[in-house]
């Protein structure tokens, strides 16, 4: 049982002042956390702290009680701009973590093909990155992260650049990946509906300084996996009411700032 904890964490940038302030968060393996909030509310900073790309200015981040001092493969990251390696084939991209840890070539190749099949890209391993569509690239990015067998999968708006149709299918893929891998997923999105549909827990961040204003348990993603349809779930009065509440929370204080 892995646990990633934020204990009263703050982050200051010398240029902007406080980016995040007083973040307290317990994130367990198996949870699907979605993070929404206006731009400037520190969503990406929160992910970068969890990934170990940034260090907190105050407070502590721990993984199973041990302080997080940098990035590590138990916290694999999926990026908005895919951040794939164009000098490698699709298969080699997926197998990157295994190459770093020195696994034999045959094992790397088998595992990569299996992971590619898992994200709907069976048999595409020999292709080059530039031969793939945006949606396919994100699938490769997810498979590459899964190859590290991470306890946590940190995703920074991975569906942000995709068209609506692709996005719907990718959401279902994310739920299946989450359920199959058993990893804890932290996903940043600017779509409230996406956040609500996928999560077991929705976090809303408010800016100036970034802080958690809503931390709400939901179960639509689990119910989708249990057989209910996406359309029916999204049309439920409860879903719609919660969506409106989250939208209000995100935009609260916006007028005051502009005045």
């Amino acid at each position: 049982m892995s646990l990633l904890s934020f204990d009263d964490v703050s982050l200051d940038y010398s240029t902007q002042g406080a980016v995040l302030s007083g973040i307290g968060l317990s994130f367990r393996r198996g949870e699907f956390l979605t993070v929404i909030g206006r731009s400037g509310s520190g969503k990406t900073s929160l992910l970068n702290l969890a990934a170990g790309f940034l260090s907190p200015s105050r407070g502590r981040i721990t993984l199973d009680g041990a302080p997080v001092t940098g990035p590590g493969r138990e916290r694999a990251v999926v990026f908005q701009d895919d951040a794939l390696f164009p000098w490698l084939t699709v298969r080699e991209n997926v197998a990157f973590a295994l190459r770093l840890s020195g696994r034999p070539r045959a094992e790397r190749s088998d595992r990569a093909e299996a992971l590619l099949a898992g994200v709907g890209l069976a048999g595409q391993g020999a292709k080059r990155i530039w031969q793939l569509s945006g949606g396919q690239r994100q699938r490769v990015g997810i498979a590459r992260a899964l190859a590290a067998d991470p306890a946590f999968l940190l995703m920074d708006e991975p569906l942000g650049a995709l068209d609506a149709m692709t996005r719907d299918r990718m959401q279902e893929l994310l739920l299946r990946v989450w359920s199959d891998s058993g990893a804890g997923v932290l996903l940043i999105t600017h779509s409230v509906e996406e956040a609500l549909f996928l999560a077991t827990r929705v976090l809303v961040l408010a800016p100036d300084p970034g802080r958690i204003v809503i931390d709400r348990a939901v179960d639509y993603g689990q119910r989708f996996l249990d057989g209910e349809t996406s359309r029916a779930l999204r049309a439920e009065p409860g879903f719609i009411a919660l969506r409106e509440e989250l939208v209000d929370a995100i935009h609260a204080g916006e007028e005051a700032n502009h005045a």
């Binding site: 790309f53 895919d82 951040a83 794939l84 990157f96």
Partner: peptide, 23 residues
Amino acid sequence: GQIHAARSLGATRGQVLWFVLLP
């Protein structure tokens, strides 16, 4: 992003140089 991706997949600084920066 590419450097961060490699680091989060377990790359040491030397591996980032060899597998990311040089290619």
